[in-house]
Computed example of a mutant assay.
Amino acid sequence: MQIILIRHGESEADILRVHEGRADFSLTELGRKQVRLMADKVKTQFPPDFIWGSTLKRAKETASTLAETIGCDIQFEDDLMEHNNGILAGLSFEEAKKFPPPKELHERVENGESAIEFRMRIESIFSKIITSSKYERIAIVAHGGVINCLLRSFFKMPVEKEFWFKSGDTAIHLIEITATQRIVHFLNDISHLDALK
């Protein structure tokens, strides 16, 4: 099964320069243009048979536009939401400096989830998706942090954040799981955004 991992387009939080995470910001107009370009590329080159999406506005709109463009079914899952950053959600980067980041994997920001809890949440939903999907190709539309956890799961990496997989706005990653192999076709493709330059 091929799995397309797609990050949402630019959101209002990017303009406001605030911590996003669980803060539920919408896409900007630029973000919507990015999404349309991404959706056209995916439809032309590797259309999925089914889409899974995060329930946060920025990813939900991205996933919905992709589903409408391709004409396939979609299922939204709360467990695909971005890392629960608790009290930091919606705070400016300056305001957030009052709250020191967790030093250990089991520690949380106030009202948030730890790195271990985040990874286990994504492990669980990824397992559900890959074991219940009977399709040749699916898409998962989510967030940068979620995509990092999905790729760490795919590569069977530890919870530690020694590696970071870059995901630009509407970045496309294509991976594949067969009976005997895990294949990376490409990561962080944003070439469809060249049309905006």
Score class of each variant (00 low, 15 high):
D73Q: 11
A67G: 05
I129H: 00
Q75R: 13
A139S: 14
R137E: 07
D24T: 02
F93L: 15
K41C: 09
D73F: 09
E61A: 08
T44Y: 12
H173V: 05
T28V: 03
N85H: 08
D14F: 06
D189P: 01
V146C: 07
Y135A: 14
V146P: 03
V184F: 00
R119H: 14
F25S: 09
E12I: 08
T131S: 14
I116P: 13
H192D: 05
L37G: 00
A179R: 15
K166P: 09
D49Q: 13
C72R: 08
I74R: 04
R7I: 00
Q2F: 09
H143G: 01
Q181I: 04
G31S: 08
T178K: 06
T55I: 06
S124T: 15
I3R: 05
P48Q: 02
N188H: 05
S64T: 15
E117L: 00
I74P: 03
L150Y: 02
I3Q: 04
E12V: 10
F165S: 01
N84E: 10
L56N: 03
D194V: 10
R108Y: 07
L105G: 09
L174Q: 14
G9M: 06
P158Q: 07
E68S: 15
L80S: 06
L66W: 04
G71N: 05
T44S: 15
G168S: 05
I140T: 07
S132I: 05
L196P: 11
G9R: 09
A179T: 12
I4F: 01
L5S: 01
S114I: 03
D24R: 00
W164M: 11
E162W: 12
F46A: 10
I138R: 02
Q45V: 13
N148P: 13
Q34C: 05
T69E: 14
N85C: 11
I3Y: 02
K43V: 09
I190E: 07
L151V: 04
P48I: 02
S26D: 14
G86C: 06
E68Q: 15
R152H: 14
A96R: 09
D79T: 13
S127H: 15
E117V: 04
A115C: 11
D73H: 12
L30D: 10
L30R: 15
H173N: 14
G53K: 01
F155C: 07
E29H: 07
H143M: 03
I183T: 06
F76H: 11
I172M: 04
I175H: 03
C149R: 15
L5C: 02
P158T: 09
K134M: 12
A96M: 04
H143R: 03
L174N: 11
I125A: 01
F186D: 00
H173F: 08
R121E: 00
C149M: 15
